[in-house]
Simulated scan of single mutants.
Amino acid sequence: MPEHADKHIGTHLRTIRKRRGLSQKALADASGVSVSLIRQLEQGTVEGTRMETAHKLATALRVTTSTLLERDDDPQSSATTEAWRPLQLAVQVAPLAGTEEPTVQGVSAILPDVRRAYFSNRLTELTTLLAPALRDADALGDEPAARALRAHLLQIAGSVLTQVREFDAAETALQRALDDSPDRLRAAAVITTWSWLLVRQGRLRESRELATRWADDVEPRMSRATPEELAAWGWLLLQASAANLRDNRRGEADDTMRLARSVAVMTGRELPRGRERLTTWGPVTVGYKAAERHIVLDQPDRVIAGARTGSQQASTEYHRHRLDVARAHTMMRQHGEAVDVLVSINAAAPEWLASQRYAQDIMGVVVEQRRTLTPEMRELADALSVPL
Score class of each variant (00 low, 15 high):
9 I>E: 05
13 L>M: 05
19 R>V: 09
19 R>A: 14
22 L>R: 09
22 L>N: 00
25 K>V: 15
34 S>R: 10
44 G>T: 08
44 G>P: 06
45 T>L: 00
49 T>C: 14
52 E>V: 09
53 T>N: 13
54 A>E: 03
56 K>R: 15
63 V>Y: 05
64 T>C: 12
65 T>K: 08
72 D>C: 06
73 D>E: 13
74 D>Y: 11
80 T>P: 09
81 T>A: 08
83 A>G: 07
89 L>D: 13
93 V>P: 02
106 G>D: 11
107 V>L: 05
108 S>L: 06
114 V>H: 01
116 R>K: 12
116 R>D: 09
120 S>G: 05
125 E>S: 09
127 T>I: 11
127 T>Q: 11
127 T>K: 04
134 L>K: 00
136 D>P: 03
139 A>N: 08
150 R>P: 04
152 H>K: 14
154 L>F: 05
155 Q>I: 06
157 A>Q: 01
163 Q>K: 13
170 A>Q: 04
172 T>I: 10
177 A>C: 06
183 D>Q: 03
185 L>W: 11
186 R>S: 11
194 W>I: 03
195 S>W: 05
198 L>N: 03
202 G>M: 05
221 R>M: 07
228 E>N: 14
243 A>L: 07
245 L>R: 13
247 D>S: 06
254 D>S: 12
257 M>L: 13
257 M>Q: 12
259 L>G: 08
261 R>N: 13
262 S>A: 15
267 T>L: 15
275 R>N: 10
281 W>C: 10
284 V>I: 14
290 A>G: 11
291 A>M: 07
294 H>G: 03
307 A>L: 02
308 R>D: 12
316 T>E: 12
318 Y>H: 10
324 D>S: 07
325 V>C: 01
341 V>N: 01
345 I>E: 00
348 A>Y: 01
349 A>Q: 00
359 A>G: 01
364 G>W: 03
372 T>M: 14
376 E>M: 10
378 R>Y: 05
381 A>Q: 02
382 D>T: 08
